[in-house]
Design a protein around this nucleic acid. Structure first.
Ligand SMILES: [Zn+2]
Ligand SMILES: [Zn+2]
Ligand SMILES: [Zn+2]
Ligand SMILES: [Zn+2]
Lengths: 145, 145
DNA sequence: CTGTTAACGAGAAATTATGTCAATAAAGAA
DNA sequence: TTCTTTATTGACATAATTTCTCGTTAACAG
C-alpha cells in the first residue's frame, strides 16, 4: 500500500505524450486544468475548478470536456462524498482507491489495495465476469479526528 | 457470501415498521416508490422512477424525498454505471455491495464481503479513522457473457 | 509554412436536484 | 371512534449541474 506523493505527478512532456498517445491535442487549457487538480491533492468539484479557471479565461465547457478526457486517460478519479457531492482527484494513470473525509469532504488517494481475491470469489458465486471495481472509503482524516 | 433473493424484499408490515422506527410516517406514496424499486431488480434512475410514478399521481418532489429516505434507511443503494448514470437499487436493510453489468445495466447485490482487514490496513497507513466504504463491481452478467 | 481538423469560448438548452408553502393525512392520545 | 398534532404531500419556482451548438482559433502532421 502506498499513499500518493506530493508535488507534480506528471512532467509537461509526460502530460503531452499522454494526450497525444490517444490522438488528443495538448493545449494550454488542458494543461491548466490538470495542473489545478495536481495542485489540489484533496480534489475539486467541477464547479470549484471552473470558478478558479474562469479567472484565467478558461471556459466552463472546456473544464467539463477536459475533466472527461482526463478521466478516460485514467489520471482523474471521481468520488462521491457522503452528501453526494461529485469530486475529482488527480492521480498517476492507473487504478486506485480513495479515502473521503466526512468532515472536510476531502479525498486522498491510496494504491496497491488488492481486491483480486474478492473478485474471484464473487465471480465464482455469481457467475459474473468481473472486470473491475470502484471502491471508496469513508471516515475522518487525521486533521478532523 | 450470499446473493439477493428474488421477489418481495419487505412485507407491508416490515416496511411500515422500518419507517416508523425512525419517526417517519408510512404513506401510500412511500410504499409505491419502494414497490417500484422492488419490482425493478436492475435499478432505476430517479428520472425513470418519476416518469412511471407521475402516472400514478406521485410527484417528482416526493420521489426524490422518498429515495433519500430509503437510502438513509439502508434499503436503497446507489450505483454509478460506467457512463456515470446515477441508479438506485432496492435491497434488504444493511450494508452490501453491488455487481453492475456493463451490458444490460443489471445490478445484483452481494453481502458478507469482508473488507475489515483492508480497512484496518488503510487506517494504519493513512491515519484516517475509516468508518465505512462504498464498493461496486463492474463486469458482465451470466446472461450477457 | 500550410492545411486539416480537433479544440476553443459564448451562450443556449437540457437535465438533475432542491426550496417554498398551503392543503392533506398519518399516528397516537383521548 | 374522534380529535390533535405535525410530518408529508403536490404544484410550482428556483437552483445547480451538465450537455449541446456553432463560428472562431490553434495544435500538429506533412
Ligand atoms: Zn481497486
Ligand atoms: Zn477531514
Ligand atoms: Zn462492504
Ligand atoms: Zn447483463
Amino acid at each position: 500500500m502506498s499513499i500518493k506523493n506530493e508535488g507534480s505527478l506528471l512532467s509537461k512532456e509526460e502530460l503531452k505524450a499522454l494526450f497525444n498517445r490517444t490522438g488528443l491535442r495538448f493545449t494550454p487549457q488542458r494543461e491548466a486544468v490538470w495542473r489545478l487538480f495536481e495542485a489540489h491533492p484533496n480534489g475539486l468539484t467541477v464547479a470549484e475548478a471552473t470558478a478558479i479557471l474562469s479567472g484565467r479565461g478558461i471556459s466552463q465547457t472546456t473544464v467539463y470536456r477536459t475533466v472527461g478526457a482526463l478521466q478516460e486517460l485514467g489520471c482523474l478519479k471521481w468520488v462521491h462524498n457522503q452528501l453526494g457531492e461529485h469530486r475529482f482527484v488527480a492521480s498517476r494513470p492507473g487504478h486506485s482507491h480513495l479515502l473521503v473525509c466526512r468532515s472536510c469532504a476531502k479525498a486522498v488517494e491510496c494504491t496497491d489495495c488488492d481486491l483480486s481475491v474478492l473478485e474471484k470469489l464473487i465471480a465464482q458465486k455469481t457467475g459474473f465476469a468481473v472486470e473491475g471495481h470502484h471502491l471508496e472509503f469513508y471516515g475522518l482524516c487525521p486533521d478532523c479526528a
